[in-house]
Design a binder for these strands. Sequence first.
DNA 1: CGACCTTTTGAACGTATTCAACCGATGTGG
DNA 2: CCACATCGGTTGAATACGTTCAAAAGGTCG
Lengths: 268, 268
Amino acid sequence: MSADSLRNSALSARIGSPVPEPTLAAGNLVKLKMACSHCHLREVCLPVGLTREQITLLEQIVYTRRRLKKGETLYRAGDPFRSLYAIRSGFFKARAATPDGRDQVTGFQMAGELIGMDGISHETHTCDSIALEDSEVCVVPFNMLEDLSVQAPALGHHFHKVMSREIVREHGVMLLLGSMRAEERLAAFLLNLSQRLAARGFSATEFVLRMTREEIGSHLGLKLETVSRAFSKFQDDGMIAVKQKHVQILEMERLRKLLTNGSRSTHD
Amino acid sequence: MSADSLRNSALSARIGSPVPEPTLAAGNLVKLKMACSHCHLREVCLPVGLTREQITLLEQIVYTRRRLKKGETLYRAGDPFRSLYAIRSGFFKARAATPDGRDQVTGFQMAGELIGMDGISHETHTCDSIALEDSEVCVVPFNMLEDLSVQAPALGHHFHKVMSREIVREHGVMLLLGSMRAEERLAAFLLNLSQRLAARGFSATEFVLRMTREEIGSHLGLKLETVSRAFSKFQDDGMIAVKQKHVQILEMERLRKLLTNGSRSTHD
DNA sequence: CGACCTTTTGAACGTATTCAACCGATGTGG
DNA sequence: CCACATCGGTTGAATACGTTCAAAAGGTCG
């Protein structure tokens, strides 16, 4: 079903010459029309910090895109792991679950972010990735990425940084879940979203939430009612203006203060 | 101070011939007496799944050990990142902190586990690693590990799996922090500890906690009093026997049940 | 042995959850 | 195109759970 949404137009758009490298033997890997080097996301995505030559190598393995409609699943826990995905457009949630049916949104991902790294360890995905709006991803076959890292160690190094950044990000979520109260969690969430949107050239103060209150709650370890109440509180206090999914941050500084003040160490 | 604890005896124990590989030019890297191939942890540590030849390569870059006394810091947030550390013996906690003084124990690590990967992304450590008992680590210089991964792609692949496993582990902690109640958290913690100890040949049902109630609480997002009460509850219920840091699991199955029953999804 | 740290336990309190009702927005089919 | 069903969101009141504050006992280490 969702495999059907492979972008045939992109596949048929292949141009250029075959790949010279022997280790990338897998047939006719050729450049795509809109390749990494011309992608407007190259400053936030996998190519960050690579030379022109290295990006050219990368383009040779990223030749497939996949389109998903809102609500479709990119991958599911249990699916065999073969590729990472670089988000070209759209918005995703990652959801982890325990064997007994508990689940939790472990993160929200937007354009330029690399997802699927949870699958490397067991060659099987361990969480679900679901599009929260119509989205498009670039498919990065993982074995090819590893092969390429041998030829272009800078790419391998950069990939290590991306994985490490994910580990650090999760530390932040753990801090949030373990030591913040409801309003602090929501403030942290909004500030994080704002900052990431700003890094992509969007407004830092006005944006549309692509997820429901329930999904926000699941991510923040709160019930949807609590999220809703916190939104209302922030609005009553004049820090933000909320109308359904549309959020406007009116007083960024006060939101930040909310975080730095509450601070209660777990140790002293 | 802690740099002084470099194991001079180990350094002077270098034997064997210089490294032949040109890309590992950094001087006289030679084999250590007790090398990876003879280490009793090779089945759980970095060498897992590598061939004899690949392990031999690995041994050439892991030539330093570091000893820490209980309470000493292996690295601290802000320290420049140069190496990963494979725990040879002992027990560590990793602690992350926000700029405003909140902190949280993000995990506990034991022999055979690889730590320090948080530092890769910004070339600076982002959390502290502290020995909870006298410990010893093998120093794995990261640039050498990356160089070696080019020569032995299987090593690089295995390293990716280790990083991915850390990401998956953190998903588990997020699930715990976001959706479990106090007793469930403690049960999950004990079962996890039990399972990891068993994987190293120790008893799955009887062990000594290396951390305080406060550190457990910090990791589980609970106050130390709550942890203490949960321990007492489990003991009253006959599932475990606790005496200070000594824990004996009497009814593993009931502990597991405690987890699978409470299950409350955040979505339905 | 004494000082300090860790742990336990009790009682009062506060915050988030639960349950429930209601409202508005969105989408579907007659 | 409207009627209706559904979904998402808001708000209130009662409840439950973990926290806070406090006291005291048990260990540990100089």
